[in-house]
Amino acid sequence: MTPSAFAVPIENYIGLSAVIFFLGVTGVIVRRNPLIMLMSIELMFNAANLALITFAKAWVNAAGHIFAFLVITVAAAEAAIGLAIVVVVFRRAAHVDVDEIATLHG
């Protein structure tokens, strides 16, 4: 398979992945709800997955596909731990907002 096998030009895939990545970064920085922040982090990871798979197809190298599977697995573990920690932190709080927890002054 050659790069010409892309029905849509490769730049579009990478452009989309860059947009998703930027959305993810913005989400983590702007949003104050830890659940949304975790979702934004997932967006960043999945932007990288899209880029990895696109490049894997362009270079005809299966390593990119394997890498993407690895990232999916790790992201699942990260989400599991993240949700557990959010539950532990906000169990007694009425609503979740990272600005409400300020025992540690940064």
Binding site: F21, V25, V28, L38, I41, M44, F45, E78, G82, L104
Partner: peptide, 22 residues
């Protein structure tokens, strides 16, 4: 709280690292 802070900020750094790797 430190666990949550570390989780959110460190995962974001992992995201940068991963996109750089891609």
């Amino acid at each position: 709280e430190s666990g949550l802070k570390y989780l959110l900020l460190s995962s974001m750094a992992s995201g940068f690292l991963l996109y750089g790797m891609a």
